[in-house]
């Protein structure tokens, strides 16, 4: 799922810090905006915008962080609105709902762990490429 590869050049100290921050940004926003799934996507998006003219290493990792957040938005939004409809409307707690929420938690937790790991590795200047998101980032983010 997570692959350590060598980047096309060796990133400098300031680059590794910024790239690592893109993951930290999504982590902090994840904790702050837990009930509203769009918060962490927005935070990562603004970080991406502010760094879109940064070096290739920084841009690459900002893009990977943004893409991973984007897919989690769908998972979390669905779970969020399902919960709202249970609390305020006529939906009831079913096995489907609980199973969905557990699945969403598993995926969020995996993403959370992967994000922490990537933030640490990127800070050390190690290029970490995620399953699917890494390949997608390569397609979008060009040197």
């Amino acid at each position: 799922m997570i692959q350590k590869t060598t980047f096309i050049y060796k990133p400098g100290e300031h680059e590794t810090e910024k790239a690592s921050n893109s993951y930290l940004m999504s982590l902090i926003a994840f904790i702050v905006g837990l009930p509203l799934p769009i918060i962490n996507l927005l935070a990562t998006f603004f970080f991406y915008i502010s760094n879109r003219k940064g070096t290739y290493f920084v841009r690459w990792h900002c893009t990977q962080a943004l893409l991973s957040q984007f897919s989690m938005l769908f998972v979390n939004s669905f779970g969020f609105w399902w919960t709202v409809s249970i609390i305020f409307y006529s939906e009831t707690i079913t096995n489907h709902y609980i199973a969905y929420m557990i699945t969403a938690i598993i995926f969020n937790l995996s993403e959370f762990i992967a994000t922490i790991y990537t933030a640490i590795q990127t800070r050390k200047g190690i290029h970490v490429q995620w399953w699917f998101y890494g390949s997608l980032t390569h397609l979008i983010c060009k040197p």
Binding site: S71, V75, A99, T103, L136
Partner: peptide, 23 residues
């Protein structure tokens, strides 16, 4: 392929977990 595999992984996890009577 990788994207589809992720989607399949998500839905199959959901499906397997649905078999448990959580209620």
């Amino acid at each position: 392929f990788q994207g589809l595999l992720l989607i399949v992984l998500f839905f199959s996890t959901w499906f397997v977990l649905q078999q448990i009577n959580w209620v």
